[in-house]
Design a protein around this nucleic acid. Structure first.
Length: 670
RNA sequence: GCGCCCGUAGCUCAGUUGGAUAGAGCGUCUGCCUUCUAAGCAGAGGGUCGGGAGUUCGAAUCUCCCCGGGCGCGCCA
């Protein structure tokens, strides 16, 4: 609602200034610091003053006096040195907001069209940890926000099932644990397999450090076998990766995170996605065969400062083979795409995958349903077998969000540059690296978990999570711990509640606490994880927001029990309760309720789910203040009680909506 | 060496892209449960926005220079 009115205000103001003064100016709007200054304000006259060589206040007065009426805006005032302040029509806002049942669905901002969001993408060789959760929760929340604003979104989870990390676990099973394929199959079917692999992977890291030569040889052989996809080694890798993926899906389902497609690297390999991309890259000259220098024999993509030079050289020396005969790559940071032994690097595969996402590769996967998905929600996976005829159409997006931590920024740039070099500038532009900072452990937390920390690390503010070392807070452990803590709060409060409901409530609180904890920080803040903060249910937390909803629902239940008749609210009453300075308190809560669209819009624009988390918290806070100030059910003035109840319902609806966007469920009681 | 990011209250962080008196949570102290759930509310205290210079009507926000910290730059992914 707020966004609707401010957009109208922006347009009208812009058009009016264009007409009146003949200048094109972008209208900045802000929320004034105090309600007495209105609901929206523009400092545009300060900027205008420079161009028109007139006092800003005078301009503001001219505009305020001549601006055509705007629906939803009661009046404009001039304040300070030249602010233009808009005062909303409070009753209209209230009525329109209450009538707005559909939320913001259907309203598409921009022309994004079909969107792919890739998130989670955990190496399928060990249990998920807290860092993976940040990725998944950020991605999932962004998906919810995009869908809320009417975008068609497909969620994809990339499965690197043929990589080094899976190979390392295979090696550990075979060489160190001396396990046969049937034995591994058996283990993979047992609970806790992801935890077992977590420990094994840490062991492998040790082995690789201690016996470098032997390890390197084994890794090479294992990788090759996995890539070729045949034989016992390959089968063991498949068994491990598939089992771990299923466990990851279950972990994420605990936080209400689901996927449409599991895109597996094995299919990118076996369906020859890279070959197709390679031909395109060669043909366009985007990559070149280096014939001299340290990269001799590699296909490289010029990078950094060299891009320009290389392009110039390209123009002069169009070589039919694509071979770069100059020495431009000799000293530079040219990115290697194909190694001198003919194998493709990760970036190369990623370019192929990215091309597919935009429908630019000229190839498609085959699809099958993933077996036994959590909550019986269909998940599709890529396959080399015949495609399931019921599979939906994947790919061909107009925008792609890749949720990957910020350390990979450079590689993501290379991928985008690859698209650009192929002449897909728009797709390169719409390849959004949705980057975020890592989750680290506070030194105290690392100590609590019993990790040995090197002396230089102990001095730092935080300790990096390391899958290789086996250092990290496992996702399932954390969720379980939170559930236990929440249950300990629920039980004494609701001894009458059936055990099953107590558990469900505790789960909702645990998941809410965790998701909110991961979302309240903006993306580029390193989260220094500590159990004390993550386990908190007070203050700026998910449970605080859930609690506000629970309070509202308690009021409604009690109201129904009391059987009190609800008076029909008159226009005069609404004007009275929201009007003037006395109405400011209630009006502010109405206004905050109606600001969700604005928060979501800003959140999508800045790619910051944290904006929605902040919104939910502030609305909950506003409600709690209201709750203490007004006792609703004992209100004797019927009109007032009807109004307070209406407002309560409004807050509930908006807060539940905001929480839904954050992937947080509001329980009935807690 | 080159590139990117960060430094805001005791601690952890916001500050919606340059706007009005810099905000919140935690922690500390003081109050508030016989009324709709105290996972709450009210109040107090706490700031040279790392430092300096500049840009302009206006800077936590933009530019430059320092100081302090983090990350990236591989024929790994």
């Amino acid at each position: 609602m707020y966004l609707t009115i401010t957009q109208r205000l922006r347009e009208t103001l812009g058009a009016h200034i264009r007409e009146k003064y003949g200048c094109e100016i972008s209208i900045t709007l802000e929320r004034p610091p105090k309600l007495e200054l209105g609901e929206a304000a523009s400092p545009v006259c300060f900027e205008l003053a420079k161009r028109l060589r007139k006092a800003p206040r005078q301009i503001a007065q001219e505009i305020a006096g001549s601006l055509p009426p705007i629906a939803g805006v009661a009046r404009m005032e001039v304040a300070g040195g030249g602010y233009l302040n808009a005062f909303f029509d409070r009753r209209a806002f209230w009525e329109n907001l209450r009538a707005e049942n559909t939320g913001e669905r259907g309203r598409v901002n921009g022309a994004l069209g079909r969107v792919i969001v890739e998130h989670t993408s955990i190496n399928p060789n060990k249990a998920a940890h807290i860092g993976h959760l940040r990725n998944a929760v950020l991605g999932d929340t962004m998906v919810r926000m995009l869908r809320h604003t009417g975008h068609e979104v497909a969620v994809q989870n990339y499965i690197d099932n043929t990589g080094v990390q899976v190979a390392d676990v295979v090696i550990t099973f075979r060489e160190m644990e001396k396990k046969s394929l049937p034995e591994v199959k058996k283990l993979a079917g047992q609970p806790g397999f992801d935890y077992l692999c977590w420990d094994l992977y840490a062991k492998a890291t040790q082995f690789f450090e201690e016996e470098k030569a032997r390890a390197a040889k084994l890794r090479g052989e294992t990788l090759k076998a996995i890539e070729e996809g045949e034989g016992e080694i390959a089968e063991m890798a498949t068994v491990i990766a598939d089992a771990i993926v299923s466990l990851h899906l279950r972990t994420m389902a605990r936080l209400d995170i689901f996927y449409e497609l599991l895109a597996r690297e094995s299919e990118i390999l076996h369906l020859h996605f890279w070959d197709a991309a390679f031909e395109k890259l060669k043909a366009s000259g985007a990559i070149q065969l280096s014939t001299s220098g340290k990269n001799a024999g590699c296909w490289i993509m010029p990078w950094g400062k060299e891009v320009k030079e290389a392009e110039e050289i390209q123009e002069v020396k169009e070589s039919p083979t694509g071979a770069l005969t100059s020495s431009a790559d000799e000293d530079g940071q040219a990115k290697i795409i194909v190694r001198s032994n003919g194998t493709v690097t990760y970036v190369g595969k990623d370019i192929a995958y990215q091309l597919w996402k935009f429908g630019l590769l000229g190839k498609d996967f085959q699809y099958r349903k993933w077996p036994a998905p959590p909550d019986a929600k269909t998940v599709w996976a890529t396959t080399t077998e015949k495609s399931d005829p019921g599979a939906p159409h994947f790919g061909e997006a107009t925008a792609v969000y890749n949720v990957i931590d910020t350390r990979q920024a450079y590689l993501q740039e290379v991928v985008a540059e690859g698209l650009r070099a192929l002449g897909h500038a728009r797709e390169a532009e719409n390849s959004i690296h949705f980057d975020y900072q890592i989750v680290a452990l506070t030194p105290r937390c690392a100590a609590e978990l019993g990790y040995e920390i090197a002396a230089d690390e102990a001095k730092k503010a935080y300790v990096e999570v390391s899958g290789r070392k086996g250092h990290g807070v496992k996702a399932d452990d954390l969720i379980t711990k939170l559930e236990a803590a929440a249950l300990a709060e629920v039980q004494p409060r609701h001894p009458e509640m059936p055990a099953k409901e107590q558990l469900a409530t505790a789960h909702a609180i645990a998941a809410g606490a965790l998701r909110f904890f991961l979302l309240k920080y903006t993306r580029n803040t390193i989260i220094a994880f500590d159990f004390k903060d993550a386990l908190s249910f007070e203050g700026e937390t998910g449970p605080y927001c859930q609690y506000a909803v629970v309070r509202i629902r308690a009021i409604r239940r009690k109201g129904v029990e009391a059987g009190a008749a609800r008076a029909e609210l008159t226009k005069e009453s609404v004007d009275k309760f929201l009007g003037g300075v006395e109405g400011n308190g209630l009006w502010e809560l109405v206004l905050d309720s109606g600001t969700l669209d604005y928060a979501v819009d800003a959140g999508i624009g800045a790619q910051e789910p944290a904006f929605v988390a902040k919104y939910a918290f502030q609305l909950a806070q506003g409600f709690n203040v209201f709750y203490h100030k007004h006792h609703i059910l004992s209100e004797t003035d019927e009109q007032k009680r009807a109004f307070l109840l209406g407002l309560t319902e409004l807050v509930e609806r908006q807060l539940v909506r905001a929480l839904y966007l954050l992937g947080i469920e509001a329980p009935e009681k807690m």
